[in-house]
Write a protein that binds this DNA or RNA. Structure first.
Lengths: 334, 334
DNA sequence: TTGTAGGCGTTATCAA
DNA sequence: TTGATAACGCCTACAA
């Protein structure tokens, strides 16, 4: 019996117990080389007996790889981002990588600091294509593989995964147009550049029709803000017959406040959003929304990131197809 | 001008540029020792000039610390867990640690493998107190600091953070009792041991009253399952006058299906859940729920974990106080 | 098929 | 106040 040691067994202990060299153990456990049946058996047994497991940091010193990937989000409480994480987690698990989630809203540091700190601790990063310019620049200058989500990549040498925001706006606009709505108010979130694209697409769908548009600006893409803006949007000037929100959280807030104000939806005003979060099915009326394929975006982004880390795969933009989900909140037949 | 090198600058490069030893640089950047103004200035300048940043893996080799903490969840799409992550992320960011989120549902590996793999890559772990026994045992046997959530710690040497599930059941039971409900059905989720505790607490609140109880079992704690069970619960045998679900997702499903079936809530049957997820405010009727302090639990668990990693703080159980949030779904006055 | 030995970037110990 | 140097655990040429 050896003196019981506190420290975890190392590859040297295993090598000694198996009567082979550390190189042999290393190659065997990494599957980078085969050995005689007997040797392999001895190693396996030693590993089990000593309860040895690889020290990822020590490996990382050689390989330069951490085995971790990071995803930077604006607010993990938004189900849109949660779904992205879900998809990303699935793809990461498939290749045995760990997912570091950075909720930018929870760090007092500016995003730049967050991203810089993270990039040394991961093999690659999934981040919004709409980060402030300095952050984007730092990312482009750095050597960490990056995949962008939410919009096209800021340059040619990086991959991105997104839905077409114009198109998403357009299909929703077309639906509203078909239903006969003509006075459209949009609650945008200017901080996200794609808010504008949705708005453009929405308006395009009314080409040639005598429609009236008004835009409002949300200070944050959350339900509270939707509630706050509801009366502003519905009661100022002439009432719109349809309100489109930048995302479903805003739309849920609108819906709740409409009910509180006694405004009937969709009879007096239709309401719709983007993202198709799960909870749009549980409000009353149920919320019409454009599904921005959150989970698929996360999953695909992670797949692309893994490819980038491995140095395979092309650099391009994956544009997923969003789809309209019509529910009660716009489903008035006139 | 040096030959441009691809590899990132090391502490040696900094030391050389500043004309000091690596030891001096190391101590200075870690703040573990002060030096002459002049030396410190030279180091700072070299760091900036070379754009040097610490290699966390190399540091980890010495310190044994990764700078990462892990949290293992059942399903990140459940807003209860999302809020826990939010709280944990906040506390982690405060001490500059990174949060690795493992969604057990997304890994094909059994939980045991997930936990084992993770524990080598983090300085500490936050996990459910209700993991399968073998997993718990492995955690207890291991040397990674662990904090449990959801229930009391399985042993004395580990911290845990939770709400009192009996009490949560009791306050909801008392509310229902006060409102005059007497035929109570409970949709439990037996996989989570605390489901039973909530159920016990619920029944306790009706002590001495002639109440009738029925329990049903959900296969998963999600809204789909709530929808599926709705007709079973409401239409089999005599209709209950109140249905309590193990969590809000199940309750949302119940609510939606009740509406589809034309059952009025709360007039014909009251519905309530646990967790007080944000979306309980946006359904109609709005959902009564017991707030299980998800975000506070996550934040406190992370605080305790950090203490454990630093070897300070006591080992104990933090029991947070849950609170009842009465909304329309149980708010019938008779 | 197996082994030797150097190096990865940092921290910590001890000496100057 | 500063420096030399040995770890830390693993991988990977290169040898045998």
């Amino acid at each position: 019996m050896n003196t019981p040691r506190k420290r975890a067994p190392t590859i040297r202990d295993v090598a000694q117990a198996a009567g082979v060299s550390t190189a042999t153990v290393s190659k065997f456990v990494n599957g980078s080389q085969r050995f005689s049946i007997e040797v392999e058996a001895r190693i396996s047994q030693a590993v089990i007996q000593l309860g040895w497991s690889l020290n990822p940091m020590a490996r990382g010193m050689n390989t330069g790889l951490t085995g971790n990937v990071g995803i930077v989000l604006q607010d993990i409480r938004n189900p849109h981002f949660t779904s992205m994480v879900k998809g990303a987690a699935r793809a990461a698990a498939k290749v045995q990588m760990n997912l570091i989630v950075a909720d930018a809203a929870e760090s007092r540091e500016p995003e730049l600091a967050v991203v810089k700190a993270l990039s040394r601790r991961v093999d690659g990063l999934i981040v919004s294509a709409r980060l402030p310019q300095p952050v984007i620049q730092a990312l482009l200058d750095g050597s960490t593989p990056v995949v962008f989500y939410g919009g096209p990549s800021p340059d040619d040498s990086h991959h991105s995964v997104c839905c077409d925001n114009y198109q998403a706006g357009r299909i929703l606009g077309r639906h509203l147009s078909d239903r006969g709505y003509r006075r459209i108010s949009y609650i945008g979130f200017p901080t996200a550049a794609w808010s504008e694209e949705r708005w453009q697409g929405l308006q395009e769908a009314f080409q040639g029709q005598d429609a009236h548009f008004t835009q409002f600006e949300a200070a944050a893409p959350v339900s509270d803000e939707g509630e706050r803006l509801a009366s502003v949007v519905m009661l100022s000037g002439e009432m719109p017959d349809a309100i489109v929100a930048f995302n479903d959280l805003l739309a849920l807030g609108l819906l709740a406040e409409a009910r509180a104000l006694g405004v009937r939806v969709p009879e007096q005003v239709a309401i719709a959003g983007f993202d198709n979060i799960a909870y749009g099915r549980f409000c009353n009326p149920m919320l019409t929304s454009v599904d921005m394929m959150s989970e698929a975006v996360g999953e695909q982004a992670m797949r692309r990131l893994v490819q980038a880390i491995q140095g395979v795969g092309s650099t391009d933009v994956d544009v997923l197809t969003s789809r309209l989900v019509v529910r009660e909140s716009t489903n008035l037949r006139r």
